[in-house]
Design a protein around this nucleic acid. Structure first.
Lengths: 227, 227
RNA sequence: CGACACCUUAUUCU
DNA sequence: AGAATAAGGTGTCG
C-alpha cells in the first residue's frame, strides 16, 4: 500500500475580517520539505473562512486515493469537520447556543470531499520557535496571498513566500538549509512511458512530462533537489 | 490662573529586558527648550517598566498644583493610565486575554499621583526626523541612564545627554541651534526676598537661592539662557 | 467560562 | 534582517 502523504494548510485575514488568503502545501517524503504548494486570494473574508477554504482547496488538489496526514493550527476548522460535524448533521445545523452554524456551505463541501478518503488530521500549534515547517510554510504563503491578493504556487513557478514578521525564528542552533523547491524547473523532463504516482500524491498519465527527483519520478514542479 | 507647563518623559532598556533607565524633562516657556530634567537607573527591567517609571518620577517631581502637558511616545504607558485603567479597576485587573495586568503596582501609583491634578497627555511619535525636541531630550537622557546606570539631571549639574546613534538627523535644512541649557550654572544667584513660582512649575521659598532667566526668577538649575 | 486562530497598535531593542 | 514588552479587537466553537 502506498505511503501516506503529509500536508498542511492555513488561512490568513488581514484585519479579520479583511483581505484574506489561503494556502496548502504537500511535503516531500521527509515530511518537512515543501514539494508542491498553492496559495490564493479570497477578497474580504474572516480568518475562519480562510482556514476552511485552505482545507477545501487542499482536498480538491490532492488525489482522493492517496492517504493524507493534514496538519493545521486551526482547532476551529479541524473540529468543525471532525468533532462537531456529526452533531450538526443530526440537529439541523444548530450551534450549542441555538444559533445557525457559520460557514455551513464550506463545512458541507469539505465533508463531501472527505467521503471515502483516508485522512488523518493533526493539530500543530502556530508560530512556535521550532514548530512544524510545513505549517510555517503554509502560514507564510497564506499571509502573502492575503496581502497581495494574487495566486501563487509551485505550479506557477512562484518564489518561496517571504518570512512572516510574527513567526519566531529558531534559536542559535545551526540547521541544514532545506533544499530549494517550487521555483523554476532546471533538470531534464521526459514523457512517461507508463502511468504512475508522483510523491505529491497525484498520479500522472502515460505521455505526461515527468522529471526525476530524489525518490523517483513525478511532476516536474514537484522536484525537490537535483538528482 | 497659572500657565500650563509642558513636559516629556521616556524610558529605555538595553536588551529588553536589560539595564534600564528613565528620564523626564520640563520645558522652558517656549515648549521646546529643556529647563529642568532628571534621569536615573533602574537595574534590569523591561522597556515598559522604564516608561511607566519615567512618568511616575515626573509626576512626583512636579508640583501637583501646576497644570501639565505630558508628551510621551509610549502608547502603552499613556493608554494604561488613561484608557485602560478604568476598565482594569472594574474587572479586577484582567487583560483582554484573561491574564493579570502587568506592572499593576506602577499603574496604581501613577493613578494616585494623577488624582485631583490637571494633566493632559499627548502622544508624540518616537525618533522622528523633525520630532518633538523634549521627547528627543528625554529619550537620550533615559538611554544614557540605562547605559551608565548613574543618576543625572539639571539639579546635579549634569551635562546634556549625548545624541542617540539611532535618532535620524535633520535633512539639509539649516536650523537654529537650541539655546544651551541644564549644564553648569554661570550667572549670578540671589536669595529670594519673597516666595514665588519658578517656570518649572515648582515654587521657591523666601531665602532660597534663585536666578534670573529669560522669563523671570526661578531655580538656578532652571535657567535656559543668559539674560 | 474555556480553547484555537486571525490580527491591530506602540515602544524597547539586537 | 531579527526578538521582547505590552495592550486592544474579531472570528468561531463547546
Amino acid at each position: 500500500m502506498r505511503e501516506r502523504v503529509v500536508a498542511a494548510c492555513d488561512g490568513a485575514s488581514k484585519g479579520n475580517p479583511g483581505p484574506a488568503g489561503w494556502a496548502w502545501v504537500v511535503s516531500d517524503d521527509d515530511e518537512r520539505t515543501p514539494a508542491r504548494w498553492e496559495a490564493g486570494p479570497l477578497g474580504r473574508a474572516t480568518n475562519n473562512v480562510a482556514e476552511l477554504t485552505a482545507l477545501e482547496r487542499l482536498l480538491t488538489a490532492v488525489d482522493p486515493d492517496v492517504p493524507l496526514e493534514i496538519r493545521m493550527d486551526s482547532q476551529y476548522a479541524m473540529k468543525a469537520v471532525t468533532t462537531w460535524l456529526p452533531g450538526w448533521k443530526r440537529n439541523g445545523w444548530k450551534t450549542a447556543a441555538g444559533k445557525p452554524v457559520a460557514n455551513q456551505d464550506l463545512v458541507v463541501r469539505i465533508d463531501e470531499l472527505l467521503d471515502g478518503r483516508s485522512v488523518e488530521f493533526r493539530y500543530v500549534p502556530a508560530h512556535q520557535v521550532d514548530g512544524d515547517p510545513l505549517n510555517d510554510f503554509a502560514d507564510r504563503a497564506a499571509s502573502q496571498a492575503a496581502s497581495v491578493q494574487e495566486p501563487a504556487g509551485s505550479a506557477l513557478g512562484s518564489a518561496q513566500p517571504p518570512p512572516s514578521p510574527d513567526t519566531p525564528k529558531t534559536a542559535g542552533a545551526p540547521r541544514r538549509k532545506a533544499p530549494r523547491t517550487g521555483g523554476t524547473a532546471s533538470s531534464r523532463t521526459i514523457s512517461a512511458k507508463f502511468p504512475g504516482r508522483c510523491l505529491c500524491g497525484r498520479s500522472y498519465a502515460a505521455g505526461e512530462k515527468i522529471a526525476k527527483n530524489a525518490q523517483g519520478w513525478g511532476h516536474p514542479e514537484c522536484r525537490t533537489a537535483e538528482a
